[in-house]
Amino acid sequence: MATGDLPGKRHKLKVLLKTGLHKMTNVEVLKERRTRPQQPATRTGATNSRSHDRVAADLQIALIVELDADGAFLMRELQRLRYTVRHFWPVPAQIPENFDVVYCTLVEDLPRRIPWLPGEPATALVLVDKGRDALNLKLIHNCAAHGLIHFPATARSTISSLTMAREHFLYEQRLRGRIEKLDESLRTVRTVERAKSIVMQVKRVSEEEAFNHLRNQAMERRVTIGAVANAIIDSHELLG
């Protein structure tokens, strides 16, 4: 064997050894992946529950029930979920408004004890039915509550009634916000129409020209067209 061929053969031998080791390593990795025990998947429900607990820890809850066995259980469940709970008994003459959620025993004159107007609740209201008498559906309707829980309560019914009541209340708030914006838009449209007619009479211009005048005035003063319209109406009324 020629001495000059030795370096080349040694180089080829090194390449073959590296290739073989690389293939063996890949095979070992594949075997490890196949034999490795799979980690249990995270339970979405548990994660959501923990997230809900973190959010719900800020909730202030008024509990207006008699602290018998059922009432005490409900209070323990709410406290176990890390809510801040304040107990009231008997039912106060006026339902407190400075809470995020109010659990209140269903009594005959409860609608008169609710301080807010129907459709404009100050807090989420959950009615508590003791489960002793027949349900008074008319009374429940008149209370306009966001949820209802029956005694004896369970852990599941407690968290369900609270979540549904809270979501219902927040949904109502969003709807009221949209309605208020729509009402404001309608008022602005009426005001602009009235201001347009004044401009048309005073300047003897067309409807389009009157609107352009209002818009230009609003752009120059960097205010809304509704503000310009209000100013024109007020000035016109002052001048008679």
Rank of each mutant, 00 (worst) to 15 (best):
58 D>A: 15
217 Q>I: 05
177 G>T: 10
239 L>K: 13
43 R>V: 10
205 V>C: 13
226 G>S: 04
50 R>A: 14
23 K>E: 08
26 N>Q: 13
228 V>N: 05
234 D>M: 08
229 A>D: 04
215 R>E: 09
161 S>V: 04
79 Q>A: 14
107 V>S: 02
28 E>F: 04
122 A>K: 11
159 I>P: 08
71 G>H: 12
41 A>D: 00
212 N>H: 13
173 Q>R: 03
53 D>Q: 13
16 L>V: 00
189 V>H: 09
192 V>L: 02
194 R>T: 07
72 A>H: 08
70 D>F: 09
132 R>C: 08
69 A>T: 14
46 A>F: 14
86 R>D: 13
187 R>E: 12
18 K>E: 08
200 M>K: 08
147 G>C: 02
200 M>V: 05
237 E>V: 09
89 W>G: 04
10 R>A: 02
14 K>E: 00
7 P>C: 00
40 P>L: 12
133 D>Q: 14
230 N>L: 10
50 R>I: 15
105 T>R: 12
178 R>K: 10
153 A>G: 03
8 G>M: 06
232 I>S: 03
77 E>K: 10
164 M>A: 09
156 R>I: 10
111 P>L: 00
143 C>Q: 00
167 E>Y: 05
99 F>M: 04
153 A>D: 06
151 F>R: 15
7 P>A: 02
238 L>K: 15
99 F>E: 01
199 V>K: 07
197 S>G: 00
2 A>Q: 06
236 H>N: 11
174 R>A: 13
104 C>V: 11
116 W>I: 01
115 P>A: 01
233 I>V: 09
37 P>G: 05
228 V>R: 02
136 N>H: 08
116 W>F: 01
62 A>R: 04
112 R>I: 00
149 I>W: 01
174 R>Q: 11
90 P>C: 01
